[in-house]
Design a protein around this nucleic acid. Structure first.
Length: 296
DNA sequence: CATATGTCCTGAGAGC
DNA sequence: TGCTCTCAGGACATAT
């Protein structure tokens, strides 16, 4: 379930691809229903083959790969946007299975000076067991309209939002704070796992209504958000018991060993040592919390 | 407009 | 053992 820390780790993992040029775009044959690739694969190819990767970025829970012409490296013209959703992985090597390999960029490092013959080939792979993920190509203008415009499918990034902005964007809402934290239009990057972890650190009950939170609580929430997400990035994300999530080199993350509440039903609360962690369901998703130290 | 619910998908694990 | 059922939660479509 890649969320902000996992996607950030993916982005950092493929950073060595900056400067490489796209040789081929491939969609491996696949017995199951193909993932969404937009636009059609032939148009996709025509638009990016020969272009150079000029930057790698993250937009909420999406990996963004900027492409440009080699001689104008500074400006990205097209963006490949990869949405891993539940089980998607962005890899340089070693896909866990061949059958779930969904998309490949064959890359080469242009020889200094002159052209073609590949010096140092490399791949960027998208692997996705459940196939809910997608790969899309946007022009810079389309990208800005969808992810940065006022129509905003994405709110401010959870790591860049200010405390005032956080409060301002949510304080009027009547929703439960846990549910609001999952709304990518409000804040980008937080998913089900980190929402529970963040609220636990902040000492806020997941079913607290946004409009009832006091300023002190918004400040604590903001601080907890940074603390948890930065820590999770440091440990390269969470690989849960199903083992799905991997970094770009197909290595497991380590933050699962630092979870305080997620999937810890019945265990002792690491903060107060008294409460046993409980599970509840909000908007059809599991929430984990300590009833003792997370008061409304 | 804000908020709530349904949908897609696969494989692990439970229960019989 | 082998079958059926449930569940996990990303983003988006549709309903209230």
């Amino acid at each position: 379930m890649p969320e902000l820390p996992e996607v950030e780790t993916m982005c950092r993992g493929i950073l060595p691809l900056v400067g490489r040029q796209v040789a081929h775009v491939e969609r491996p044959p696949c017995k199951r229903r193909p993932i969404a690739i937009r636009p059609r694969i032939d148009v996709f190819r025509r638009r990016i083959e020969g272009k150079t990767i000029v930057a790698v970025d993250r937009a909420g829970k999406r990996v963004v790969i900027w492409l440009g012409d080699r001689q104008y490296k500074a400006r990205g013209q097209e963006a490949i946007v990869i949405e891993p959703r539940m089980t998607g992985l962005v890899l340089l090597t070693n896909p866990p299975t061949q059958e779930h390999l969904r998309f490949c960029l064959r890359l080469f490092k242009p020889a200094s000076g002159t052209p073609t013959r590949s010096t140092g080939e490399s791949n960027l792979l998208f692997w996705d067991r459940r196939g809910l993920g997608s790969v899309s190509l946007f022009s810079a203008v389309e990208f800005a309209a969808k992810f940065q415009g006022e129509n905003k499918t994405l709110g401010p990034d959870a790591l860049r939002i200010t405390p005032a902005e956080l409060r301002q964007r949510l304080h009027y809402s009547r929703r439960h704070i846990k549910v609001a934290l999952l709304d990518q239009r409000a804040i980008a990057g937080i998913g089900n796992l980190y929402a529970s972890e963040i609220l636990h650190v902040a000492g806020i009950h997941p079913a607290a209504r946004c409009h009832r939170l006091r300023n002190q609580q918004w400040l604590r929430l903001h601080a907890a958000m940074h603390l948890v997400l930065e820590d999770a990035i440091y440990y390269e994300g969470s690989t849960l018991s199903d083992g799905t999530y991997r970094n770009a080199l197909n290595e497991a993350g380590g933050y699962q060993n630092h979870h305080r509440v997620y999937d810890h039903v019945g265990q002792k609360c690491p903060t107060c040592g008294r409460g046993a962690i409980q599970r509840m369901v909000q908007a059809q998703r599991s929430t984990f919390f300590c009833p003792h130290c997370q008061n409304r």
